[in-house]
């Protein structure tokens, strides 16, 4: 009776349809757009005017070397580590994942669709923030645009790796937010969220540079002034991304 039954994974159409559905749900939930679109602007506007006039390195202002890298990193970390896991935990809590569990959908399908839509949201917000920084405060582009894009992409993968682990492990939406916030502030504190990494003791600053938050701030700042990105930052972000997604796929729970 089993000979003619073939295991068939959902194809490209399923991936596309789920991503489009996730995007529609986000677009229909206007409150969910506040963090990715509003947060970068808020952070920027709070410190941009003073930082824009302060030249710190190679003719670049504090806005370009510190504020923009920090703002970009905060936003991607906030969305990936706090925002996105709470959506998945909500899906689990309400039984949406349970319903998908009795279909051919795989955990990867659900996780990747969430990630793609979340990244698009983040990019929209970041584009808006950078545009305001350039047009409103005279910020210039990075000396090495390719490195900046590469560092941001790698940092995003690492942040989503952490977020995926939180989403896979958190039993409830509330605990997802709680665990996500603890993780966000832990990597943030060691990465210069509260006053810059120069204010941290050397051992903590070294650890911070290898974590995704500190690595992203350091790497983006370096790209803006045309300096090289520290290898430990690149390795740290790569390892976090690989471990995060692997752990999330293994421990993923439908309910």
């Amino acid at each position: 009776m089993t000979t003619e039954i073939q295991a068939q994974r959902p194809g490209l159409r399923a991936w596309r349809t789920l991503v489009v559905c996730e995007a529609k749900m986000v677009a229909r939930d206007t409150s969910g757009l506040i963090v990715p679109l509003g947060l970068p602007l808020l952070i920027l506007l709070m410190s941009a005017s003073s930082a824009a006039s302060q030249v710190v390195q190679n003719g670049h202002t504090a806005l370009e070397v510190f504020v923009l890298p920090l703002a970009l990193t905060i936003v991607i970390a906030m969305i990936a580590i706090v925002n996105m896991p709470s959506f998945l935990a909500y899906y689990r809590r309400t039984g949406i994942l349970r319903r998908l569990a009795v279909t051919p959908a795989s955990p990867a399908l659900v996780l990747v669709a969430q990630t793609v839509v979340s990244i698009v949201q983040a990019l929209l917000g970041l584009t808006l923030a950078v545009a305001v920084a350039v047009v409103g405060f005279g910020a210039g582009p990075p000396e090495d645009l390719g490195v900046a894009v590469g560092v941001f992409a790698l940092a995003s993968l690492a942040m989503y790796g952490i977020g995926m682990m939180v989403a896979a492990l958190a039993p409830t939406p509330n605990s997802a937010v709680a665990i996500g916030l603890v993780a966000f502030f832990a990597v943030g504190a060691l990465g210069g969220l509260f006053g810059g990494m120069a204010t941290l003791p050397d051992p903590l600053a070294s650890i911070g540079t290898t974590l995704p938050f500190g690595g992203a701030v350091q790497g983006l700042g370096a790209a803006w002034v045309g300096a090289s990105v520290e290898a430990s930052s690149l390795i740290g972000m790569t390892v976090t991304a690989v471990v995060g997604f692997a752990v999330a796929a293994v421990v993923f729970r439908w309910e």
């Binding site: 529609k24 229909r28 949406i96 349970r98 319903r99």
Partner: peptide, 10 residues
């Protein structure tokens, strides 16, 4: 299933 939900805004 007796207890499951679907994406509410779709």
């Amino acid at each position: 299933l007796q207890s499951s939900a679907l994406h509410g805004s779709l």
